[in-house]
Computed example of a mutant assay.
Amino acid sequence: MTITDTGTGTVSWNPEALAEIVSNDGGRPVLFTNARVMTMDPLIGTMTGADLLFVGPLIVGVGPSLVTAAQDDDAIVVDCAGMTIVPAVVDTVALAGGRGRRSECVATLTPGNTTDFLVVPDELAADVPSAVTTLISRPERVRALVAAGRPVLWAGTDAPGRVTAPETGVPAVPDLTGSPRLGVWIDRKDFLHQELTADGRYDETRGGRPHAYRGRFWIDGDRIDYLDDLGFWAYGEFKGDELHHAGYVMKQS
């Protein structure tokens, strides 16, 4: 099946639906219909002639006959006849039996999970690994790759307005002057003191030992990443007035 008109460069697989999804502000439901859906959920399994319904970044329904409510809900409908939908992220730990509960199997097409999925022709999806391999080895055969409800690839090419991956390399440290998260953070046992300064540097005192670890840091939302002068990376998270890092819970002094 031809998915791109090489003469005009226009997409020929559900182009109207793509335009609607790209312009959608997240409020309208989107329904991928009439597909084989390999959910990888141990309860739901694989279904044929099924639908996948999502609103913004979350899957809200999966199974047959969801299309019957598409008009009522003003859903954007994508016809997936001859296509297979699989999770875009494969939970290999779950596949190997390393998850004890369904709720731990995060990379499944289960209502309530993140809208990350891949659409490929049936003949390229004997199983989930085969479908994912298509994305790596034959991306031009991919009909859609959707991440958190937004198209990344469509008909084998970049979707309009797709998110751009971060550039490789260590980023520059922004001017943090005035940030409320600067200062000294101390854990509950008074063992770890971590100072964050406006020049993007941190300095840790551990058990009274000064300069135990020092390096650079970057704050992105509630996430903080550390690059120690010794060369290793570490991570922390701001939760309200607390900083959680490597098992420590700290508050500003």
Rank of each mutant, 00 (worst) to 15 (best):
residue 29 P to W: 02
residue 31 L to T: 05
residue 32 F to G: 00
residue 32 F to K: 00
residue 33 T to M: 11
residue 37 V to E: 04
residue 38 M to P: 03
residue 38 M to N: 08
residue 39 T to S: 14
residue 41 D to V: 10
residue 43 L to C: 05
residue 44 I to E: 02
residue 45 G to R: 05
residue 45 G to I: 11
residue 45 G to E: 07
residue 47 M to N: 01
residue 49 G to C: 07
residue 49 G to L: 04
residue 51 D to L: 06
residue 51 D to T: 10
residue 51 D to V: 09
residue 52 L to E: 05
residue 53 L to S: 01
residue 53 L to P: 01
residue 53 L to A: 08
residue 56 G to V: 04
residue 56 G to C: 07
residue 57 P to Y: 05
residue 57 P to K: 01
residue 58 L to E: 15
residue 59 I to Y: 04
residue 60 V to E: 13
residue 61 G to C: 11
residue 61 G to T: 09
residue 62 V to F: 07
residue 63 G to I: 08
residue 66 L to W: 04
residue 69 A to P: 00
residue 70 A to W: 08
residue 70 A to K: 05
residue 72 D to T: 15
residue 73 D to I: 08
residue 74 D to Q: 13
residue 74 D to K: 09
residue 76 I to R: 04
residue 77 V to H: 07
residue 78 V to I: 15
residue 79 D to E: 14
residue 81 A to G: 15
residue 83 M to E: 11
residue 83 M to A: 15
residue 84 T to N: 02
residue 84 T to A: 15
residue 85 I to F: 03
residue 85 I to M: 10
residue 88 A to M: 03
residue 90 V to K: 01
residue 90 V to H: 03
residue 91 D to Y: 05
residue 93 V to E: 15
residue 95 L to T: 03
residue 95 L to M: 13
residue 95 L to K: 01
residue 97 G to N: 06
residue 98 G to L: 10
residue 101 R to Q: 15
residue 101 R to A: 15
residue 102 R to C: 07
residue 103 S to Y: 10
residue 105 C to G: 00
residue 107 A to L: 00
residue 109 L to Q: 07
residue 109 L to M: 10
residue 109 L to E: 05
residue 110 T to W: 02
residue 110 T to F: 06
residue 114 T to A: 13
residue 114 T to D: 11
residue 115 T to D: 04
residue 117 F to L: 10
residue 118 L to G: 00
residue 121 P to C: 04
residue 121 P to R: 03
residue 124 L to K: 04
residue 124 L to V: 01
residue 127 D to R: 01
residue 128 V to L: 03
residue 128 V to E: 03
residue 128 V to G: 02
residue 132 V to T: 10
residue 134 T to Q: 04
residue 136 I to S: 08
residue 137 S to V: 14
residue 137 S to T: 14
residue 137 S to N: 12
residue 139 P to E: 03
residue 140 E to R: 10
residue 141 R to S: 14
residue 143 R to V: 07
residue 144 A to P: 09
residue 146 V to Y: 04
residue 146 V to T: 08
residue 147 A to N: 06
residue 148 A to D: 07
residue 149 G to Y: 02
residue 150 R to A: 14
residue 150 R to D: 05
residue 153 L to G: 08
residue 153 L to I: 11
residue 153 L to W: 09
residue 154 W to Y: 11
residue 159 A to V: 11
residue 161 G to R: 12
residue 161 G to A: 14
